[in-house]
């Protein structure tokens, strides 16, 4: 136990160095004068956006173990909330982000109420229904707000303290900052009373309930939180693309996100990040395969299920630090009389 701090520091330094190197990528591209730099940055931005989405889905699917395949619906609600508030009411993009969070969360709360008790494949089917209904509603210009199949055009760029984010490298820092926020937030959540409750639910709902976890409430909150955060990702997406249409929020998007989480390792955030790079990044690098992407997905999933059903990085045991008193007690060997409960 006493060597915990010494082991922790190099890993922190390593993570910091890796993060710094990653954040230097735009500068590096500029320095070497890479002509395709903006293209690669754009790809990294897409990966980043999917990482935020997948991390938010991970709370629902990975931690709480709920088979939710309709995440694109909440992504869409966030994007459309931002677009409508910006275009029709002149809100700045940053101001629309909390609104996107709330709108997606509210829809999730309304929808989840009646379906939250469904298990496994039953929930899966209902959530597929949600994403399809959302897409069709958007296509039909619901409330006369969504612009029908053509979607909404001319969404503003976000401005930070008067600085307008317009180039890929601007979005690179914005999006990956949000990835960092998402990661830390959900990391804290995972290692808390709340996160543990979700793990208990995933492992054995009956036992979790019998240990005092209000399983219905926790599932509902996890679902709403994950959905609301997908709404934030939607807000970023809308301002990055400037144009959104129902085509961007299909069932296929939901499947993609589902695949990222399962492939990466449901419940493990590092695995989910790696999954985003693999599922979104690799097909771009191997462009020749792109039209066979679904085939590759299928094959990858089948192989994963056979050889690594837990995902690339399965969840690791929780790292818990004992109090000094307990650490010292356990290091000392002569406590046999205690362990014998006579």
């Amino acid at each position: 136990m006493s060597d915990c701090p010494t082991r922790k520091w190099p890993s922190l330094v390593g993570t910091g160095a890796a993060a710094a190197a990653f954040l230097a990528i735009p500068l590096f591209f500029k320095a070497i004068g890479l002509r395709s730099g903006p293209y690669w940055l754009d790809l990294l931005n897409t990966v980043g956006l999917y990482t935020i989405l997948a991390l938010s889905l991970n709370v629902i699917l990975g931690h709480a173990g709920m088979f939710h395949m309709g995440h694109a619906a909440f992504f869409a609600v966030g994007a459309y909330t931002t677009a409508i508030l910006n275009l029709n009411h002149g809100w700045t993009i940053l101001a629309t982000m909390p609104a996107a969070f709330l709108a997606a969360g509210l829809l999730a709360a309304i929808l989840a109420g009646p379906i939250i008790h469904l298990r496994g494949d039953y929930l899966l089917i209902v959530t597929i229904g949600i994403v399809e209904i959302t897409r069709i509603a958007l296509s039909n210009n619901i409330f006369g707000l969504t612009g029908g199949p053509n979607g909404l055009v001319g969404i503003a760029r976000p401005s930070l303290f008067g600085f307008r984010l317009s180039k890929p490298q601007h979005f690179f820092y914005f999006i990956w900052f949000m990835v960092g926020v998402t990661y830390v937030m959900f990391y804290f959540l995972e290692n808390s009373r709340f996160g543990r409750a979700l793990k208990y639910i995933k492992e054995d709902t009956v036992a979790a309930e019998s240990m005092g976890v209000n399983t219905t409430a926790y599932k509902l909150i996890a679902f709403v939180l994950g959905a609301a955060w997908a709404g934030v990702a939607g807000a970023i997406y809308a301002s990055r693309m400037r144009t959104i249409s129902p085509d961007s929020f299909t069932f296929e998007e939901s499947v993609l996100l589902f695949t990222i989480v399962i492939l990466g390792g449901s419940g493990n955030q590092k695995g989910v990040m790696l999954g985003s790079f693999m599922v979104i990044g690799l097909p771009e690098i191997f462009r020749g395969f792109q039209d066979k992407r679904l085939l590759v997905f299928g094959a990858a999933l089948v192989l994963m299920m056979i050889f690594r059903p837990q995902g690339l990085f399965p969840p690791t045991p929780a790292r818990v630090k004992l109090s000094d008193a307990w650490s010292n007690k356990l290091v000392e060997p002569a406590t046999n009389s205690e362990s014998d409960d006579g």
Partner: peptide
Amino acid sequence: FSKLTVLENVLSGCHTRMEAGLVAS
């Protein structure tokens, strides 16, 4: 909770006596 550690299992019993909510976590 067979995949979780021994300590995490016992912490599930503590859940009902703890108070930290979503935001605090």
